[in-house]
């Protein structure tokens, strides 16, 4: 703030007329949308009462968005069981995907031709076919390999064998399908992270006498994490929604549970909105987790880590407080 001698000079901000118009228009659209959220429409049924000796009828109104239904079914047992299945599938498929992805990425960067070739082929196969098809294939794997056995290869001597259908029950088939598909994508994410770490870091570690494995674990991977974490957050959130495809192999997840209820009450829109709200809640929680994870792995890469939302609010409050205090100070100075 510039001052002319002791008196404070008033600063007149520029007026942005166009911006005000645009804001007004957008605000209007928002208001219209919010209105539809809470408007009621005729349900098609009528209610009649005998009033003053005459039968008077009027249409029964219902929420356009079916809030009462959404509210009623929100914590329904079937829905919650489905939600748990969705969360389990997301977690397990990501676990499979991450472990596979890291292994495949390291294989891909190996100097051994067979290793990198196998890794490349895996990525090519699983990234090149739709995940829906892959889910169905795992669901019907028994057609290709009815039994699995451990024994001496190319003979009929088995130590141990089991039927494909006993292992690839729908839930396991879903985890296998989602996880193997995820592994292909995740390996590319890990590979880009590993490549992003400066070659000098590896050289410095090796020159201290560290083995390749130690170098990877203590130096390269922690730094690659900074590159790997943001897309991983994306992948987890994407996986949360992709799990809804497991209906293909008859797993009852959140969407499956919603589908069952639609079959009973014939109210698809409120039920689908209900599912969407649950998906949004979970993905919001996941994004918060991602923020803190990114912040943790930014350690050493940034001079000052980004503020957490709570720190930012505190800073804003402090900023307003000091602004208020200086303003009063200026006024005092001006009046005396």
């Amino acid at each position: 703030m510039s001052t002319n001698g002791d008196a404070a000079v008033e600063v007149v901000p520029v007026r942005h007329v166009g911006q005000w118009f645009a804001m007004g228009f957008v605000a209007l659209l928002i208001a219209m949308f919010v209105h539809t959220l809470f408007s009621k429409i005729p349900s098609g049924a009528r209610s009649c009462h005998l009033i003053d000796g005459r039968n008077q009828c009027h249409a029964i109104l219902k929420w356009r968005f079916g809030w009462n239904l959404i509210f009623h079914y929100f914590t329904n047992g079937g829905i919650l069981r489905g939600l748990v299945v969705t969360l389990e599938l997301t977690a397990l498929a990501m676990l499979v995907g991450i472990v596979l992805g890291v292994v495949v990425a390291i294989m891909r960067l190996s100097h051994n031709r067979l290793m990198s070739g196998v890794a490349w082929t895996y990525t090519w196969l699983f990234r090149g076919t739709p995940v829906y098809v892959q889910l169905l294939l795992w669901g019907f794997i028994a057609f290709l390999y009815p039994t699995f056995a451990i024994g001496i290869p190319f003979t009929h001597i088995y130590l141990f064998q089991f039927g494909a259908n006993s292992v690839f029950i729908p839930f396991n088939a879903a985890v296998a399908g989602l996880g193997l598909n995820e592994g292909a994508y995740f390996s590319e994410i890990v590979r880009s992270g590993l490549i992003a770490v400066d070659e000098g870091q590896t050289e410095a570690a090796i020159s201290l006498g560290m083995t390749r494995a130690q170098t990877l674990r203590s130096v390269v991977l922690p730094q690659a994490m900074r590159v790997i974490i943001p897309p991983t957050g994306n992948e987890v959130i994407s996986m949360l929604k992709t799990t809804s495809l497991v209906v293909a192999v008859a797993v009852v997840d959140l969407l499956g549970a919603v589908d069952n209820i639609i079959g009973q009450n014939y109210q698809p829109m409120p039920m689908l909105l209900l599912a969407s709200i649950w998906y949004l809640i979970v993905s919001t929680i996941l994004s918060i987790g991602q923020f803190y994870l990114e912040r943790h792995f930014a350690k050493g890469a940034l001079r000052t880590p980004p503020l957490t939302p709570i720190q930012r609010i505190r800073q804003d409050i402090r900023g307003i407080a000091t602004k208020y205090r200086t303003k009063r100070g200026v006024q005092k100075g001006a009046t005396t």
């Binding site: 870091q201 050289e203 350690k299 050493g300 890469a301």
Partner: peptide, 10 residues
């Protein structure tokens, strides 16, 4: 090394 190559994560 010329470019120091200190471990950035430590």
């Amino acid at each position: 090394f010329q470019r120091f190559n200190l471990f950035q994560n430590l």
